[in-house]
Amino acid sequence: MTTSLSWLRAEIQERMLDKLAPIKLSPKQILLEPDFSGLNRRAFIKRFPGAQIDTILDRQIYRTIPLRIKLQQTLGRVLPNSGQLLDQGIPADASYDLILSNLSLQSRSNPGAWLANCHQHLTEGGLISFAYLGPDTGKELRNANLEGGHLQALPGALDMHDIGDALVQNRYSDPVMDMEYLYLEYETGQALYDDGLALGLISAGTQFHQFKVPAALKLTLEIVYGHAWVLAKNRGIGDSKTAYIRVDAIKRK
């Protein structure tokens, strides 16, 4: 997603904060993924005063110590010109009470692996919250370009039930999933085409004259929201009736 749609991430950021409003949470360490032009750090600082806030942008992780940002360390890298994130994970020594992911999960080739990695870096009682583009995003483009060839699928744009299952499989507790549709209307086919490229729905290299613009000049965005807690982190994986505790998690009184 390019900076031309940073307004969309900014809008989703506000909606995510609204969804977190009724949740009692006082995190000291927060990871926002990704950083983007238009990210309102002040909103997070107001909502979570005193928290250390890290944000990911391309290869770097930036640390905000209220109203001050400095380069902290290298995190990973982005595939050039593809828009797909390499699942290289959070730095091994990083630990967070809250991880928020804003319209990034749909670009990951393995969302389950990313959720598992986040679980490792969330503290006991920590929360993961995310929003991503669901499978109905850009359905008008598919209907207009039935011959294919100029469109590409978002690898992590899974049904919210699939992501909910992945949360349970990766030992998150009390997952909550919901979704909404946003509808974008355009004055020109060129503007719609530009947003389709920015969203990763149109294959890179496709020229405007090769692309069939939907007659209605509209674009549907399916926004899927989810959050879940990290509880009983030392409990091993078992069935629904049996809990297993790792030996190294047993402490003598």
Rank of each mutant, 00 (worst) to 15 (best):
Q84D: 11
N110T: 12
C118V: 06
S173K: 02
S104L: 09
E147R: 14
A113H: 07
S101V: 10
H121F: 11
A157P: 00
Q120N: 12
V168Q: 10
L86E: 07
H119Q: 02
R171H: 05
N117A: 12
L151P: 04
A113L: 02
G164T: 12
L158K: 09
L103Q: 08
H119S: 08
F130L: 14
H121D: 10
R142T: 05
H150E: 09
A113V: 08
G148Y: 02
C118E: 09
N102F: 01
N110R: 05
S82W: 01
L100F: 01
L103R: 02
P80D: 01
S173L: 11
Q152W: 00
Q106E: 13
L115G: 03
E124T: 14
L167F: 15
C118N: 00
S107Q: 10
P91C: 00
L141G: 10
Y96F: 13
T137D: 07
L167P: 14
A94F: 10
S104D: 02
D165H: 11
A166M: 15
P155M: 04
S109A: 04
G89F: 14
Q169S: 15
Y96E: 08
Q88A: 13
G134N: 08
Q169P: 03
D87M: 08
G164N: 08
P155C: 01
L86R: 09
L154D: 06
P111M: 00
A94W: 11
T123M: 11
L98R: 00
D97T: 05
Q152K: 11
R108H: 08
G112K: 07
S101D: 15
L158E: 01
L85Y: 12
S109E: 00
N170R: 15
L105F: 10
P91T: 02
L122M: 00
S104N: 06
G126H: 09
L158F: 12
S129D: 00
A166S: 14
P80C: 02
H121N: 04
G138Y: 01
G138Q: 09
L151Y: 04
G112A: 09
P111N: 03
L103I: 02
Q169K: 15
P80A: 03
N102Y: 02
P155Y: 05
A94N: 06
S129C: 09
I90A: 03
Q169F: 06
A157G: 01
E147S: 15
I99C: 12
M160Y: 12
Y132P: 12
G83N: 06
L141E: 06
L85F: 11
I163Q: 05
S82T: 00
L127F: 02
A166N: 01
A94M: 12
